[in-house]
Design a binder for these strands. Structure first.
Lengths: 197, 197
DNA sequence: GTCTATAGATGGATAGAC
DNA sequence: GTCTATCCATCTATAGAC
């Protein structure tokens, strides 16, 4: 049921999907959401919590690895790679977490009150990235670096199905988001240059 | 009522605001939304249509002016300025269109079916920008330029109240989004470098 | 633990008086 | 054109049988 709910929410939005939709699709009885999770919102929050934890664990792991490889002073591109690579990899058509990624992106704008609070107050996973990026540019005012983190995250959050489709319309079908390895490098080219400006 | 509905939708989301909320806040009777606009969705679409038209008209005007100033070949930064400046100006605390801007950003992820169709199919206002940007980089494969447009738009769409707050939490209060003139230049620094990479 | 039945609240839309 | 009263669909959540 967890997976069914995740998919429906990711594809159609949180408000549009009812407990009835979920239980019908999962072929279980209507009461089971409340029995196992307490409420619809609690189910939503549980999916959100589990997926973001998994994503940020992987990001932290890659940042740690970059630190090891570069004696604690990784270059901008490698820091950004640790930030971007997990969510971009998850958007691949055959990736197990493809749907989860769309769920997470959606949570950012349509999330429940609990999700919004968590997003607002818990920025601990970003702090390590901010530290590392600040260290690469001691010549800049810190606020400039923080703004650039905001811009880089914006690039990431825009990777929704609908936005890919829109870009495809604009480009006349030139842009193929299926090739996530290329997408990652394109994003890094753009964001790295932005940080080095 | 138009303005009241716009504000409620912008602040609380499209699904969470009911026709009852709107008519109560506007101090009119419950039936008036349906009488004047036909339905809740039609009201939403009318707000969306009017505001996006106004925004894109201003963008087109600024792009046209840049073309005049630079003999039809404006540099990257001036093209991006025409794209960014209107929406960024609208986010200023004292700007008349501050709420409208949040409405538009929200429409992108929470929009009704009609809005999604319009966003998907009508990219005509972006075509001029794409043409101009392609002309500045004939050395690049067109798809690379299109992807960079996608990234630049992502930077823009991330300028939601909640994201500003989150950035402020991360930066310990260093980032002041009220200064939209500075914000615009920061965005242009980042995006221009991304396009020149 | 599972399921049905239903409570209880809220939503968009409309009929019809004025 | 305005407003009240109301219809009817749909939702979350839960009581209670099994």
């Amino acid at each position: 049921m967890f997976a069914v709910a995740e998919q429906l929410f990711a594809l159609h939005g949180f408000q549009k999907v009812s407990v009835r939709d979920i239980t019908a699709a999962a072929d279980v009885n209507l009461a089971s959401v409340n029995y196992h999770f307490g409420s619809k919102d609690a189910l939503l929050y549980e999916i959100f919590r589990r997926r973001t934890a998994e994503l940020n664990r992987e990001r932290a792991r890659q940042l740690h690895a970059a630190n090891e490889r570069f004696a604690g002073r990784p270059p901008v591109r490698e820091i950004l790679r640790a930030l971007f690579a997990p969510p971009v990899a998850w958007t691949a058509p055959d990736h197990e977490r493809r749907i989860a990624m769309q769920f997470i992106i959606r949570a950012r704008s349509e999330g429940t009150e609990a999700m919004r609070e968590a997003l607002q107050s818990d920025v601990s996973h970003l702090e390590r990235f901010a530290e590392s990026l600040l260290a690469t540019r001691p010549d800049l005012a810190p606020e400039v670096v923080y703004w650039r983190i905001h811009f880089a995250l914006g690039m990431l959050h825009n990777n929704r199905f609908a936005e890919f489709d829109r870009l495809n319309t604009l480009s006349g079908g030139l842009t193929r988001e299926d090739d996530t390895a290329s997408l990652l490098e394109r994003m890094l080219d753009f964001a790295e240059a932005g940080f080095l400006a």
